[in-house]
């Protein structure tokens, strides 16, 4: 890992409702790459992802120790505003979740507008267009920007959600199993997009699917029972894994 890390996680421990979900995670995520956290369900990868932008704050009974540093900002420093962190770090979820009461345009414009990232309506229009183009969606929706977002197909909705995250101009984008509810065609389109995104930001992807991890990642971390068992480049993890469990997982004997 030669490049500078944009995310550094130091001995992160998370307890939810008294149960230890993350048992001391250490991780460095380099800039401008696709970094995949792979592991079976229940291994804590979703919780790890949610601790990076403090979405965990929404849950009751959460205790966090250790720290996460994103782009030099200590996320769990009491002086750090979670809103500031969420400006740096965008997020895409498992369920394509455009806000159903908003139009396509409004879904993308919401974040930048409230966060005053633009000065004028024209700038906002341009930003929305830019984000939709980057999400490979512009051509499909440019004539119906003002119809409700729920009219789109599942794959289009998920790309809209990516555009919505991109419009905030984040440095990092977190993706929590973004294709698990999509068909194979929509999935491959999103995977193509994920690879493209690393040209201007860092993608942290969570998946339980080793094939997806091998297709899109630069680096892979294998997570099991609240700890990271192994981290390496995609080649290292898939061709010469050091850990027994990693090997079992990537060869389909576990998971």
């Amino acid at each position: 890992m030669s490049r500078d890390p944009i995310i550094i996680i130091n001995d992160l421990r998370v307890r939810i409702g008294g149960k230890e979900i993350l048992k001391g995670v250490n991780l460095k995520v380099p800039k401008n790459c696709v970094f995949t956290i792979m592991g079976p369900s229940g291994s804590g990868k979703s919780t790890l992802l949610r601790s990076i932008n403090r979405i965990l704050d929404l849950y009751d009974d959460v205790e966090v120790s250790g720290d996460v540093v994103v782009d030099g900002v200590s996320v769990y420093d009491p002086k750090t505003d979670p809103i500031y962190v969420r400006r740096l770090v965008g997020m895409v979820f498992q369920i394509p979740n455009p806000l159903p009461h908003l139009t396509i345009y409004e879904n993308v414009a919401l974040g930048p507008k409230i966060n005053r990232l633009v000065r004028s309506r024209r700038e906002l229009d341009e930003l929305v267009r830019w984000a939709l183009e980057k999400a490979y969606l512009w051509d499909e929706v440019k004539d119906r920007l003002h119809v409700p977002a729920v009219k789109l197909s599942g794959g289009q909705q998920q790309r809209l959600c990516i555009a919505r995250a991109l419009a905030m101009r984040p440095k990092v984008i977190l993706m929590d199993e973004p294709t698990s509810n999509l068909d194979p065609v929509a999935t491959s389109k999103i995977e193509e997009l994920i690879i493209e995104l690393k040209n201007y930001l860092t993608v942290v992807l969570v998946t339980h699917n080793p094939f997806q991890a091998s297709r899109v990642s630069d680096y892979v971390a294998f997570m099991y029972d609240g700890t990271i068992l192994e981290v390496g480049s995609v080649d290292e993890i898939f061709t010469k894994p050091k850990n027994k469990y990693t090997e079992m997982y990537v060869t389909g004997r576990m998971g």
Binding site: D81, I83, Y84, R87, I114, R116
Partner: peptide, 9 residues
């Protein structure tokens, strides 16, 4: 961070 203070207030 334009206006964040006002928004929080």
């Amino acid at each position: 961070m334009r206006g964040l203070g006002i928004r929080k207030l």
